[in-house]
Structure formats: C-alpha cells, structure tokens
Design a binder for these strands. Structure first.
Length: 380
DNA sequence: AAGCTACGCAACCGCATCGTT
DNA sequence: GAACGATGCGGTTGCGTAGCT
C-alpha cells in the first residue's frame, strides 16, 4: 500500500469551521495550522494524498473504564496500558503533535495505536491518537457544511436506525460518526423538534377541521418511525422484565402497551423483528460493506448496538472495504436491501394489524410506510 | 466596548462486545 | 468456560467563538 504523502507548502488559513482556531495555541505557525485541513472536500486544500486507511486498524489498549483494574492486572502480567501513567497529555492537540502523528502515519501507516504514541514521540494515549486521526487528520474526511443530500440522508437514516451514528456515517462517505452526531445534536434535533411541533399544530388544526392527519408526511413518518422504535424498545424492555420477575410482570400488566404485548405472548415488534431478520441483516451487511469505506471501518457491524443476537450477526466483511469506492460499488445492493427492508415493513405491518388489531397504535400505518419510499433517496 | 449567552465541535469517557489465550 | 486484551461506538463535556444586549 502506498504511503501517504504530504503536499507541503499550503499556507492558507483554514476557515474557522474547518479548523477551529481555538485548537491552535497562540503563536502557532500558519504552516502548522494548515495541517488541520487535510482532505477538504470542497477545495484544493488537501495536504495529504493518502489511500483511505483501514479504520479497524489495531488500536492501543486504553479502556478508561478498566483503567485502574487493568493497570494492576496488566502490570502484573508485564504489560503497561497506554493510559495508566500520569502526565499523559489530554485536551486539544497542538500542531506539533498533529505533525508528529501525521508524519508517523505517513511513514508507517495507521495501526498499532497502542505503540504509536511512544514510537511517534507523542505524549498521548493511543486512543487519543486514533480519535484524532479518524476524526480530524484522516485525509479522506470531507469537511465543510453538510449538503442537502447529506442532511436528508441523515434524517432518513436516523428515522430507521436511530442513534447508530457509525451506521449513518457509513452511508455518507467522508463524514465521521462524530461529525454526524454533532450535526444531529446541534441542528437536526432542534429542527425535528420544531417540525414536530409545527406538524402537531397543523395536525390538530386539520383534525379539528376535517379529521385529517398531519400536514407534513415526511416529518410525520419520521416522527412515527422514531416513536415506534422507542416504543418497541420500551416494550421489549418491559417484556424482558416481566419474563424474569413476577413483580415486573404484575406491573407490566397494568399498562396498556405491555398488556397488549403480554396478551400476544411477547409478539415481536415489527421494527425489531425486521432489524433482526435476514432482510435487516442484509441491509446491515450492505451498509457495513459501504461503511468500511467511510469513517470507522466495520462500524455498521456493531451488532451489539443493533441489538442483534449473536446467531444473527453478519460475518465480518471479507475485504474490509476500506475505501470510499466500495460505497458506490455496493450502492445497488444496498438499495435493494433497503427496499426489501421497507417492503417487509409494509407486509409485517399488514400482518400485525390483522392479527393484533390496534395494539400498535404508535406504529406507522401502511400509508405512512408507503411514503417510506422516499427513504430510498440516499441510494439514488 | 464590555459582558453575557448560546452554539458548535473536538475530545474525552466509559460501556459493550469480540477475539484470543 | 474464564480471563484478559483489543476495538468500536454512543454519550457527554469543555472550551472557543459568534451573536446579542
């Protein structure tokens, strides 16, 4: 694999959003500052020309949660966790540190994050190095404002998978899960809230006038999907509780939703069933295949995050799919899987409506699911 | 011009899970 | 099967900046 090459000499000052000035200490040279704008998608400002790196490269051992116990255990075993020592620097990265990291990755490629700080002369933990690289220094990161397409894709994908940022990022080459997460928390959440309120108002007015539904189909279906997803999780949680404790069972029986669920012998939720089904798995696999290209490798794999039983977990991607071309290659398959996923949602819903009546009041009605065809947009 | 507030985002934290021994 | 190591990812925080009063 060809090693990254720095295209030196760029002196321009990056835009604030692309390279927040607060990251750079006063007195930092502009040459160093330019280090921060690798891969700027909308300009020729890319400083690095590198192959997209495998995101699942080895990483340092630095679980903070286990830091103390592991430190003791590791010490006993003759290993030294990378973050156990005092004096490891935290906080914003200095340009010098960025340069060291970039230089090292150029020379050796990403990977072995645990040893990287030591080898590169950085007073950082490996995890910090990996995050800095994957979220900021990596050359294929697309910076700048989100496009309308990206914006819509995020909305649509979030309506389906929820806060699976890595999975969403897998559909948006060049965007990191962290970036999408921040974008969601700062922009989209607010927007959806406003739209929901507006939609609710409009719906209330229309309902009062003609008994009609919401005036905003797109916002409505997203809201309903999200509501259904949350309700499904809540029901699943309740069912789980009721299955293990009689007290919980009695409590659960007192609520309407859990009663309905109990009456139907823990009838599986459509969404969760779909998500855990072969179709869902297929969709995840496709997303995963593409995702490896984007930010964090087999992010979509995260079967645990998707609540997938081990038996249903997709096999690891064979090739790693660690460049963005994979996304376009697999786009058609992903689209097929996506459509199948949505189709099955309609079928499952019809079945459940017939079987369970109005038990799943919060779940989108068939017409709403039909509208879900617009979710196809990101693959077209 | 100064102070205040809200916002945006990089970075950190810590949990979950997989793989290996 | 248990213990440990390694990795991925979602949630949260801290701080600089921009905008407003």
């Amino acid at each position: 694999m060809p090693l990254p090459v720095v295209v030196a000499g760029l002196q321009q000052q990056p835009a604030a959003r692309e390279n927040p000035s607060h990251l750079w200490p006063p007195g930092s040279s502009s040459a160093y500052k330019s280090v921060g704008i690798y891969g700027h998608g909308s300009s020729s400002a890319s400083l690095l020309v590198v192959p997209v790196v495998a995101a699942d490269a080895t990483e340092g051992r630095e679980r903070e949660s286990d830091r103390r116990s592991v430190a003791a255990a590791a010490a006993a075993m003759g290993r030294t966790p990378c973050c156990d020592s005092k004096g490891i620097k935290k906080g914003p990265w200095a340009p010098e540190e960025d340069k060291l990291l970039v230089d090292f990755v150029q020379a050796n490629g990403p990977g072995n994050w645990r040893m990287l700080p030591k080898l590169a002369g950085l007073n950082r933990c490996g995890k910090s190095c990996r995050l800095r690289w994957t979220n900021y220094l990596r050359p294929d990161i697309k910076r700048g404002p989100f496009t309308t397409e990206e914006h819509n894709s995020i909305l649509q994908l979030h309506a389906i998978v929820g806060n699976k940022w890595s999975m969403i990022a897998a559909q948006l080459p060049g965007r990191t899960d962290n970036e999408i997460k921040n974008y969601w928390n700062t922009h989209l959440k607010k927007q959806l809230r406003q739209e929901a309120l507006a939609g609710a108002d409009a719906a209330a007015q229309q309902l009062a006038a003609a008994g009609a539904a919401s005036s905003c189909p797109a916002a409505r279906h997203m809201t309903q999907w999200e509501t259904a997803r949350l309700e499904a999780e809540a029901r699943l949680s309740l069912l789980s509780s009721s299955a293990t404790t009689t007290v919980a069972s009695a409590t659960a029986a007192s609520s309407s939703s859990s009663t309905a669920a109990a009456e139907h012998e823990a009838a599986p939720d459509i969404f969760l069933r779909l998500w855990n089904s072969a179709v869902g798995e297929s969709f995840r696999c496709s997303a995963q295949g593409q995702g490896a290209a984007a930010a964090h490798g087999p992010a979509a794999a995260s079967p645990a995050a998707a609540g997938t039983p081990a038996a249903l977990r997709p096999a690891a991607p064979s090739g790693g799919g660690d460049d963005s071309s994979a996304a376009s290659t697999n786009g058609t398959e992903a689209a097929d899987d996506y459509q199948a996923f949505l189709d099955m949602a309609v079928e499952e819903l019809a079945l459940l409506h017939g079987r369970l009546g109005v038990s799943f009041s919060a779940f989108p009605t068939a017409d709403v699911l039909a509208e879900a065809s617009c979710l196809f947009a990101p693959f077209e």
